[in-house]
Design a protein around this nucleic acid. Structure first.
Length: 848
DNA sequence: GAGCACTGC
């Protein structure tokens, strides 16, 4: 088909006329109308661009920018990079003669920051504007400002498939709206007849049922939308178990999947295919041959909570517009059908559009660019949609904290201007500047590069991969950044070979993109006069840089037995279990994410952690401590806290208490003695950790005479805890260079725990929710003891016993004896007994 | 036995 036959050509005359006339235009046209390829060419052909001017076409994705440029270059009969070119991060195919330039959103925003007048640009086309990305919104606002001030000749065209044109039209007024038809096939929408509660009826089962139903009435492939990897895996399982879907092949598809598996999902097959996918298939990836879409109506949606200063990623209901976009995927090659797993009535209650990013994400970076362009009062910037006041506040607060803003008006500082040169979140830009002072620009550049794109160190890998990582990358306790660095170096050394990468669970494609970014950052750092020479890397200095960028994400471990942490500003979180920093009492988390669990509970996860030391705070933020010389520690902290209410409150004071006086160690040891003597049930430890700490603190206070130093207090308490919680098995101890006395002591303690623990747990296990877990390596001590006590032969392991505690046993006849239960319920029953026992033993205290 | 969508400078 000739491009001239595309529906958009019906609008050619009107487009040119409007653009010439008022200079602002909204084009509303669905996929397949040809707007992205043809409108830029129309502008060029009709001389709208003037003698030498160019049209910049904004694209939300790199791939789209590249592909569109290629196609338009062909159509226009020029070489790519000559008349038509593209520019994305780290890749530029343009020349002096380029008249149509496809760019991604960040490129234009940066060009606006450093060359605000946009010389040579005659027109800007905002494509796929309905996606409402942060940079798109800001760029449009700035383009309008520019047109109203020094560049009245600048043409602005906003294009979108679905759009609330009313609000946009007012924003752009005076402007015209032109509407065109698309070239896709009709898609019949079917709603579920009755409401489904996914808590009772899992979404994957309903989806599989829908697939079976649709399989008979259609002939093409099917695409199922699910919110994430877990739901996708369950859906694939359900589909593979469904009778009516035996002839189908079924593939998962999501962003973290290795490329070869993604290819497998997209490939063509003889058999009919079902793809179960996340939102990647909604916009970023098109799949041919799909004639039926099954839509769960759910997605994991990222937000930034400006009140707590943390990111959230929770499952939510998608908007009507998003559902339409998903449905449209069934009509690309033939008429199709879309089944929605919700009722028509429920549909009417859904949001029309997704909330734009500007109302949803961390604004620190864009606020910095606005400040740089002289917008001191960001609240009164002409936003298309104004972000929450708290979001702007939070952004300014962080920037001020990082030193990028200064004075009462919070105008950009010299430091802020320097930070702006670095194309990344201001936190990382700040780390570069700290790195210059500490002689570690290179490693910081690598760290920034490592965290820019997709996470390349895959999570949830198997035991083998974990072991390979340990073997090949070595032990790491100080920072997850260091582990990432080593993993990347490994991949680089192996030329990003798929085999080598797979062995360590490295996403080769994602890792490959780090190198060029690293080079770019070094280049920029060099241009800014930073010292980028290679040298010996001092880990301490690097970690101090992390603290400089993330001081407000300082966290303290609440105890040694769990991963729970307390953060600055009265926040709580749980350290990621895959973190390398499992021992440090004080750490900085570069990523904080609230995510939903399978049971519907929500966790704040602290990831990308770096161990830090309290003494560094004073060194890195000397201003906060400057008039505290010669006063006591507590007094100096008090002064700092009153000056900087937010930053170090509570946290530092508490760290001091626990490191200097160690009441927890003493109390943990005391409680352990109670457990071992049979007076206190181990489970009593397992309720909320806060309560536990309160209790043990009180115990320590009451029994100062207690002696707890046979090895070292910290080691001892931690070890007791770990053994009792089952985090440490015999295997963990036997290879460690601990003193023989410690080894004996631990073995004895383990035995005691089993004696106390196992009989009761076994009887409780019957009929409770239980799962079978296979452990290839058991503890010989446990095995021997269990055999002696119960006559069961096999490999036994005290399972990973964060709350709740459990013991897993696999007998040689493959019959599992698995113990897991809800200790909260158990504790409710147990606590009065413990209390009675403690009251009997320690009558002088009142137990609560 | 868990805890994570997608882009982009």
């Amino acid at each position: 088909m000739s491009p001239r036959e595309l529906p958009i050509y019906e609008l050619e005359g009107a487009v040119i006329e409007t653009v010439r006339g008022c200079g602002r235009l909204i084009v509303q046209a669905p996929t397949g109308s040809g707007k992205s390829t043809q409108i830029p060419q129309m502008l060029w052909r009709h001389g709208v661009l003037g003698e030498k001017g160019e049209v910049v076409v904004l694209q939300p994705r790199r791939l789209a920018a590249r592909l569109l440029a290629k196609r338009v270059a062909e159509e226009a009969g020029t070489n790519l990079g000559e008349g038509v070119g593209y520019q994305i991060r780290l890749e530029s195919r343009i020349s002096e003669r380029t008249r149509i330039r496809f760019v991604t959103e960040g490129i234009l925003l940066r060009q606006m920051s450093f060359d605000p007048g946009l010389p040579g640009v005659s027109a800007i086309v905002f494509d796929e504007f309905h996606e409402r990305h942060l940079y798109g919104d800001i760029s449009l606002a700035r383009a309008l400002q520019l047109q109203q001030s020094t560049r009245p000749d600048l043409k602005i065209i906003v294009m979108s498939a679905t759009l609330d044109a009313g609000a946009l039209k007012n924003y752009l007024a005076p402007c015209e709206v032109l509407t065109s038809q698309g070239r896709s096939f009709p898609v019949a929408i079917e709603y579920w007849s009755k409401p489904v509660n996914f808590e009772h009826e899992p979404v994957w089962e309903v989806a599989a049922e829908a697939c079976e139903r649709v399989a008979e009435s259609t002939t093409g492939d099917m695409l199922v939308f699910m919110p994430g990897g877990y739901e996708i895996a369950r859906t694939v399982q359900a589909i593979q178990g469904a009778r009516g879907l035996r002839g189908f092949v079924c593939f998962p598809l999501h962003g973290e999947l290795p490329p070869e598996q993604q290819d497998r999902a997209v490939a063509r097959y003889e058999a009919r295919k079902i793809i179960v996918s996340t939102n990647v298939a909604e916009t970023s990836l098109t799949i041919d041959g799909v004639t039926a879409v099954i839509d769960s109506g759910l997605a994991r949606i990222a937000r930034f909570d400006p009140h707590r200063g943390i990111n959230t990623l929770l499952v939510e209901k998608i908007s009507a517009a998003s559902a339409d976009q998903r449905a449209g995927r069934a009509g690309r090659t033939a008429p199709g059908i879309a089944v929605r797993l919700w009722t028509e009535r429920e549909h009417g209650q859904r949001a029309l559009q997704e909330l734009p990013e500007v109302k949803r994400l961390d604004l620190a970076e864009v606020v910095l660019t606005l400040k740089a362009s002289g917008v001191d009062d960001v609240a009164n910037f002409p936003w298309l949609e104004k972000p929450e006041a708290k979001g702007l506040d939070r952004a300014e607060e962080l920037l001020a904290d990082l030193g990028a803003l200064a004075g009462e008006r919070r105008a950009i500082s010299e430091l802020g201007r320097k930070m702006l040169r670095f194309p990344m979140h201001p936190r990382y830009a700040r780390m570069f500047l700290a790195a210059q002072e500490r002689g570690c620009v290179r490693p910081v550049a690598l760290m920034a590069a490592l965290t820019q794109g997709r996470n390349f160190l895959l999570r949830g890998v198997g035991k083998d991969v974990e072991r390979a990582r340990e073997d090949l990358l070595g032990e790491e306790h100080e920072s997850d950044f260091f582990l990432l660095m080593r993993a990347w170096r490994f991949a680089e050394k192996n030329n990003f070979s798929l085999d080598a990468c797979r062995r360590l669970g490295i996403h080769a494609q994602a890792a490959r993109q780090v190198g060029p970014l690293f080079e770019q950052f070094l280049q920029i750092a060099g241009d800014e006069g930073l010292d980028i020479a290679e040298g010996r890397i001092d880990g301490v200095e690097v970690r101090k840089c992390v603290l400089a960028g993330f001081s407000d994400q300082l966290a303290k471990r609440l105890d040694g037995g769990t991963l729970r942490c307390e953060l600055v500003h009265q926040r709580r979180g749980v350290l990621a279990r895959e973190s390398a920093v499992q021992k440090a009492p004080l750490l900085v988390a570069a990523e904080i994410n609230e995510v939903g669990g399978r049971g519907g509970e929500v966790n704040v996860l602290l990831a990308l952690a770096t161990a830090v030391e309290e003494a560094w705070l004073k060194e890195i933020f000397p201003d906060d401590f400057k008039d505290t010389r010669g006063v006591s520690y507590d007094e100096s902290i008090r002064r700092v806290v009153s000056r900087r209410e937010r930053r170090f409150r509570d946290l530092v004071l508490e760290t001091k208490v626990s490191s200097d006086e160690a009441p927890l160690d003493a109390a943990a040891a005391l409680l352990t003695k109670e457990v071992l003597a049979g007076r206190l049930k181990l489970e009593a430890w397992d309720e909320a950790v806060e309560q536990w700490i309160t209790r043990v603190n009180r115990l320590a206070e009451w029994f100062p005479e207690l002696e707890v130093n046979p090895v070292t207090p910290a080691d001892r308490a931690t070890l007791i805890e770990q053994v009792c919680y089952g985090e440490l098995g015999y295997r963990d101890i036997k290879d460690k260079p601990v003193m023989p006395v410690l080894r004996d002591w631990l073995t004895a303690e383990q035995l005691a725990v089993i004696d106390l623990y196992l009989p009761e747990r076994l009887t409780m296990a019957n009929g409770r929710r239980s799962k079978i877990t296979y452990h290839d390596e058991g503890s010989p001590v446990l095995s021997a003891r269990i055999q002696e006590l119960y006559g069961i032969e096999g490999k036994f392991t005290v399972g990973n016993g964060r709350v709740p505690v459990k013991i897993e046993v696999l007998a040689p006849n493959q019959r599992p004896i698995q113990v897991t239960d809800d200790l909260t319920a158990f504790w409710r029953d147990m606590y009065p007994k413990v209390k009675a026992e403690l009251s009997r033993r320690y009558p002088r205290h009142e137990w609560r």
